[in-house]
């Protein structure tokens, strides 16, 4: 594990796989969009609005996955104080916030024609909105202190506290009666989605996963470079201070 957690090694590995990830992302979205918009049938109840599912569901999954990554990174940053963990946490939270926002917007656009409303305060929708605020809170706390280390530690604590929201989102549709329907994929008796819609969904989800990985690595690279820049500027400043005139 620690072999990959070395920043230098990470940068070399990242540089090597980044072009492949970008190509895979483009390919995945091309195929996914074709299947979602053209290569799949309308739903027997929902008609063409079912196509919103191919964006809504993967972005909701990514929003949850990103928070899981944020939680794990924050835990290892607090416990093992590894610098790469702090970088991963800082890199993932804007990505997670973007996916959460996308899931909320597409869900709203799906809810209006099907349910008859853009928004209701049921347990699923409310807990998902809370997820968005957790991401925003994490980003705000990171920048709230002059001392970067303090910001990172308090943001990590918030991220860990927010982990409790993940099971609530997942099981809200089972624990309470909600307007949102129960799970279609993660079910004991197999998915309740016809294969002709399941494969477009899985293709889109795969494209979203690769996209998430590509932008996460890009951001982690940037943050490492920014740390390097801060160190170099600090060193240059010290030189100026100590050099005789």
């Amino acid at each position: 594990m620690h072999r990959f957690a070395n920043p230098g090694r990470f940068l070399r590995l990242a540089n090597r796989i980044q072009p492949w990830l970008k190509a895979l992302t483009a390919l995945g979205f091309l195929l996914g969009l074709y299947l979602a918009l053209i290569g799949s049938p309308p739903d027997y109840q929902q008609g063409e609005t079912v196509r919103i599912m191919y964006i809504h569901v993967p972005s909701a999954w990514m929003a949850l996955l990103a928070y899981l990554i944020l939680g794990l990174a924050s835990a290892s940053a607090l416990i093992w104080r590894h610098p790469l963990a702090d970088i991963a946490a800082e890199a993932i939270s804007p990505i997670g916030a973007a996916f959460t926002l996308l899931a909320l917007i597409t869900g709203s656009l799906w809810g209006k024609p099907m349910w008859g409303t853009y928004w209701v305060w049921d347990a699923r929708l409310t807990s998902f909105l809370l997820l968005f605020f957790l991401y925003l809170g994490h980003m705000a706390l990171l920048g709230a202190f002059d001392d970067r280390g303090r910001g990172q530690r308090s943001a990590a604590v918030l991220a860990l506290v927010g982990l409790i929201n993940l099971p609530i989102i997942k099981y809200s549709v089972d624990w309470w009666n909600t307007l949102h329907q129960p799970a279609s994929i993660a079910r004991m008796d197999g998915p309740s989605i016809d294969p002709s819609m399941l494969w477009p969904l899985f293709t889109m989800a795969a494209a979203f996963h690769v996209f998430l990985l590509a932008v996460l690595i890009e951001r982690m690279r940037t943050l490492l470079l920014e740390a390097k820049l801060r160190n170099q500027r600090l060193a240059a400043f010290d030189r100026v201070q100590t050099e005789p005139f």
């Binding site: 609005t49 196509r51 919103i52 964006i55 656009l109």
Partner: peptide, 10 residues
């Protein structure tokens, strides 16, 4: 009016 804005937002 719902499908295209959803894809646009994406």
């Amino acid at each position: 009016a719902y499908v295209w804005p959803a894809y646009g937002a994406g």
